[in-house]
Nucleic acid binder design. Structure first.
Lengths: 109, 109
DNA sequence: GCTATTGTTCGATGAGCATCGTACTTACTT
DNA sequence: AAGTAAGTACGATGCTCATCGAACAATAGC
């Protein structure tokens, strides 16, 4: 069975401070990096388990919820798995250059 | 007397997460906005008192210290006043496009 | 010298949050 | 049906931090 759960907030209502706060965490930034990395070399989405993080499952779940609530990611359920992807297009339209510059910045040691 | 106190951290050592965290606060974002606003229509710097904020003096002082410690601003003392400015050039060189995109994003309701 | 003015420091307070482990739910597999 | 795999929910814990007011320090001006 394939369910579509679209709890992602409307882009027009999304606050910059919320986005910045969501990105201002090492674990969440790493999630975004991995999601961006699979955008052009994969299906553009990852299941929770495919994202490799230095924290436990429940903590990862918390961070993924934070990113989704901030409007940065969208989620899609399929069976027991949940697939996450960057809301790249919408983000770029609302906050031009933000994601790109943050990703470039995150790429630096 | 004119003192130069350069407590600003070296740009090369500055962490993206720290910068994002510093920007992820309404008050600090407003400070950055006002500093950016006076860059090309003024001396490029503001004293603490010239920055209008909806918080008390001690809180403003705390936020200014946070921005400086994150490498986003530099400070210059002159008498009893302290003048703050954006470290724009250095930031742009280390994190290209970041400040611009954040400022543009912050300009949206 | 006295008095504003400017900004910092300190202690307290209250809220938010990153983390963990355990228990639970749902779905897939055999 | 029984077991396993994938995530979520919950309660607890401890840290960080935004905020305030009051006291302090340093300088400028009269």
């Amino acid at each position: 069975m394939i369910t579509e759960k679209s709890l992602s907030p409307d882009m027009a209502t999304i606050d910059v401070v919320t986005v910045l706060h969501a990105l201002a965490d090492p674990v969440r930034l790493e999630i975004v990096r991995q999601l961006a990395g699979c955008e052009h070399s994969g299906p553009g989405e990852l299941s929770c388990g495919q994202i490799e993080l230095p924290v436990g499952k429940s903590t990862a779940s918390h961070h993924l919820k934070t990113l989704s609530a901030a409007g940065i990611t969208s989620e899609r359920e399929e069976g027991t798995r949940k697939y996450i992807r960057l809301r790249r297009k919408e983000l770029d339209r609302r906050f031009p250059g933000l994601v790109d510059s943050v990703l470039a910045a995150a790429g630096k040691g």
